[in-house]
Amino acid sequence: MDLKREVPGNCPICKSETKVTEIYCKNCDTTIRGEFELCKFCRLNEEQKYFIEVFIKNRGNIKEIEKELGISYPTVRNKLDEVISSLGYKLEKPAINQKEILEKLSKGEISKDEAMKLLNK
């Protein structure tokens, strides 16, 4: 069985960003040495990669993501914020849209507790 191993984007010891220093082609026996940057997505942990896969598969439809992962709206938002941060982007706290939160509550899309959490941010 051929196990697929990915290059860790962060050091398992100190959590700093890693660099690739050698690439090898087993077909032509070529080795390239240097310092290579990893893509931004290599910085994501397995859980974050899975979340992004589900997010893309569901075309960003939060209701479908909630259903597939069995998590609440605020949890989907928190996971998305974690991914955004891990990719190196700064998160600005969005202004609370009370009307949107109350509409979601009235439609049963979020619970009373979830609405309270969102309104108290």
Rank of each mutant, 00 (worst) to 15 (best):
57 K>M: 08
70 G>W: 14
52 I>W: 07
24 Y>L: 12
13 I>T: 04
49 K>H: 06
47 E>G: 13
42 C>S: 15
88 G>H: 14
59 R>H: 11
29 D>W: 05
31 T>L: 15
39 C>I: 13
96 I>H: 04
94 P>A: 05
49 K>W: 07
93 K>F: 00
101 I>S: 02
41 F>V: 10
82 E>N: 14
62 I>P: 05
29 D>H: 11
50 Y>Q: 13
60 G>D: 06
51 F>G: 00
59 R>D: 04
31 T>R: 07
102 L>H: 12
40 K>F: 07
9 G>P: 08
10 N>D: 00
56 I>F: 10
55 F>V: 11
106 S>W: 06
87 L>Q: 09
11 C>I: 12
59 R>P: 00
111 S>G: 10
59 R>G: 00
58 N>I: 04
25 C>A: 12
84 I>G: 09
70 G>L: 12
1 M>Y: 06
117 K>Y: 04
49 K>Q: 14
104 K>E: 02
59 R>F: 01
71 I>M: 08
1 M>T: 01
109 E>T: 00
100 E>Q: 12
116 M>Q: 14
88 G>A: 10
41 F>P: 00
26 K>D: 13
66 E>Y: 06
104 K>Q: 10
52 I>K: 05
68 E>W: 12
47 E>S: 15
48 Q>S: 11
4 K>C: 06
103 E>A: 11
87 L>F: 03
90 K>R: 02
25 C>K: 11
82 E>F: 01
28 C>V: 03
78 N>T: 10
103 E>T: 12
103 E>G: 04
20 V>R: 12
47 E>M: 03
20 V>L: 15
94 P>C: 09
21 T>G: 07
78 N>P: 00
99 K>G: 00
83 V>K: 10
35 E>D: 09
17 E>V: 14
59 R>A: 07
91 L>W: 04
115 A>V: 04
108 G>C: 01
100 E>T: 07
92 E>T: 05
59 R>M: 08
55 F>N: 11
23 I>A: 09
59 R>C: 02
58 N>V: 04
80 L>M: 09
12 P>V: 03
82 E>C: 05
43 R>Q: 01
16 S>V: 03
105 L>H: 06
102 L>K: 14
30 T>D: 05
69 L>P: 02
90 K>M: 02
12 P>F: 05
21 T>S: 14
17 E>Y: 05
76 V>F: 06
51 F>V: 02
